[in-house]
Design a protein around this nucleic acid. Structure first.
Lengths: 158, 158
DNA sequence: CTGAAATCGTGCGTATACGCATGAATGCGA
DNA sequence: TCGCATTCATGCGTATACGCACGATTTCAG
């Protein structure tokens, strides 16, 4: 066994570590790591359909729906009927959601720095590129079963 | 926003893609991606305590316990009292577990190849190194709350 | 030796991941 | 135009992630 089987292992370990750290960092705000991902994705601009939101956060629509129910109840997001498509609903941050996001963004800064500082100059963009390539390859391999998530580097996480 | 906030996003996307693909690949065997991780970790050698198993697969002990209950019921793992520590139990693959693992390892081969082939020569070991550094940095940042998982590159995943 | 701290597994509660199924709406081809 | 395929959100069931609490056992410091 060598590098080939090391990739999934290292990927899993890194991701779970990130997830754990993020959960802890946002706990004081009563928000989980994944809720932050959702809020951050919405903070990026216009209202999105649930489907588009799920795509942008690389998540399953079913999961996103459950999360939205929860966050809507907390008053951080609002869902409205889509202007032109009766099947869809648009999701956007509320004013409270925007305020909460700003605090969360600051709370996530140490984590982003720890990851960035663990790398040498120039390695961060390289890592991002490699990971995106992996994600693309795996999503394309399963393209016959559904639309791959869109990868938009402007989306944010801790 | 730039590379610094891109890292968590790319990491999440890559991991979830891997997880999804793996789940699909092992579904025919009635095994999930995470169950494969557990079985693969045990396939590496001697019986482990639950705590050590959880560490080696970068998982939470509570989660591992629930998984073991399930896999024990399926007859793929067995848990026994620890020879010297009355608090602990050791976990090992059964013969059926070993047979199942061999099939799963083969089923995961296409996924490992897809990831590997998405990279240029020399990039795989680099990616693994970068990911391990990230994981280490994040785990050390939270070391005050507990023992970090051990990172053993010999452990396997799809 | 003794008491406190640490460790082990267990279980609970909450959150997330995702396949599958469903009904309603939209898009597309004949 | 019409019927079929696709898309959207919803909800269910199963699995996993993890903090927290607990009881039992082991380790450690005085």
């Amino acid at each position: 066994m060598g590098s080939k089987s090391d990739i999934p292992i290292a990927l899993r370990a890194a991701y779970l570590a990130l997830h754990r750290c993020s959960d802890a960092a946002f706990a004081a705000q009563g928000i989980t790591a994944d809720q932050f991902v959702l809020l951050a994705t919405l903070a990026r601009g216009d209202a999105l359909t649930q489907r588009e939101l799920a795509r942008r956060m690389s998540s399953d629509p079913s999961t996103v729906r459950a999360m939205l129910v929860l966050l809507e109840r907390l008053g951080l997001v609002k869902r409205e009927g889509h202007p032109t498509d009766a099947r869809a609903r648009t999701v956007a941050l509320t004013a409270a959601g925007k305020r909460k996001f700003r605090k969360l963004w600051a709370a996530g800064e140490p984590i982003r720095s720890q990851m960035f500082d663990a790398l040498n100059p120039g390695e961060a963009p390289l890592l991002v590129q490699l990971l995106n390539r992996i994600a693309t390859a795996l999503n394309e391999a399963s393209i016959s079963v559904g639309q791959p998530p869109s990868f938009n580097s402007h989306e944010v996480e801790p």
